[in-house]
Simulated assay, not measured.
Amino acid sequence: MTRIGDEVVHRYLSRLDEPGRPRVNLATLVRLHERHVRRIPYHNLDIRLGLPTDVDPAGNAARLAGGDAGYCFHLNGAFAALLAALGFDVTLHRGQVKKAPALPDGVQFANHLTMTVTLEGRRWFVDVGLGDGLLGPVPLRPGVVRHPPLTFGFAEAAWGWRFTHDPRGSFTVMDWEDRPAQPHDFAEAHHVLSTAPTSTFVRRLIVTNRGPDDVVWSLVDCQLTRIDGDGVHHRVLTTFDEWRRELEDTFLLRLDDGHTAGLRRLWQRLPRQRSIPAG
């Protein structure tokens, strides 16, 4: 993995409200992970606006340090680069997010980049690129983990590991290989996901983050969803100004006047839908 420079490290840490270079320990990993998923949203806005990106971890670390965000290849790649620059022992892995439980086990199409960190004699599963996923790192072992308001499962398999999402989450499972991967292993999948007409990322706008007070927010096209301790709540956004305000205030997207024309064109293309009753 290409190392990132001290300036990028400093700006990245500043975005995570980390005033200085932290120690390499579990407390640091937990703190940076939680701040990352609360402050840097998961989104495919670049794809929907026709803005090219790649899977280079160092380049994406610079993008995030400058205020941008992205989806798994950008978020996890950048965070892995930051952790490596700080001195953590990081390993990348090929993963596959699946929405249909009938799909074959294992990884046939690496549509997800994930990572493990070896620290204090133990391996930790670390992932800031699942959108409505983990709040913090998890010891790599079979079992159930609760990060309110969601609950996740981990199971070991011959090919690696299976992460099972909460039933209210955005997908069913994410399988990942235990063997190490390299950044270039994800280039083809990124190209397909960001250009193919059949790709969900090309057809739908998807934005997700973990808000304060154990809340998970997601926006799919015009529908805003909040998951909290009381259940799942949906609301359809009906005006451009309301939609943009949610992007900036709820999802913390840094939008400037240069985005306005593209956002308005995207808003006009989004499918309109009725609100789903809260459940």
Rank of each mutant, 00 (worst) to 15 (best):
L29H: 00
R39K: 09
S14N: 14
P22N: 03
V9M: 14
I40M: 04
T28V: 01
H10E: 14
H33S: 00
H36F: 08
R38P: 00
R23K: 14
S14R: 14
E18F: 06
R21Q: 09
I4S: 07
I4M: 04
R31F: 04
L13C: 07
R39F: 07
E34V: 01
H33K: 00
G20D: 15
R15P: 07
R3E: 15
V30T: 12
R21A: 13
I40A: 01
Y42E: 06
D6V: 08
G5Y: 10
I4C: 05
Y12S: 04
G20E: 13
P41A: 15
L13P: 08
V30A: 10
Y42K: 04
V30Y: 02
D6W: 02
L26M: 09
T28G: 07
H33Y: 03
I40K: 02
P19N: 10
L13W: 06
V8M: 00
R23G: 15
D17H: 13
N25Y: 01
H33P: 00
E18G: 02
Y42H: 13
R3K: 12
L29F: 03
P19K: 01
V37C: 04
R31W: 08
S14W: 10
E34D: 10
A27I: 04
H43M: 11
I4D: 05
E18K: 01
V8F: 03
E34K: 04
I40W: 03
R3M: 11
D6Y: 00
L32Y: 12
H33I: 00
A27P: 03
R21Y: 10
L13R: 04
R23W: 09
R31V: 06
E34G: 12
V30L: 13
V37M: 00
G20F: 10
G5H: 09
D6Q: 09
H36V: 04
V24P: 09
N44T: 11
R31T: 15
P19Q: 08
I4F: 11
I40T: 14
R11N: 14
V30R: 15
R11W: 09
A27E: 15
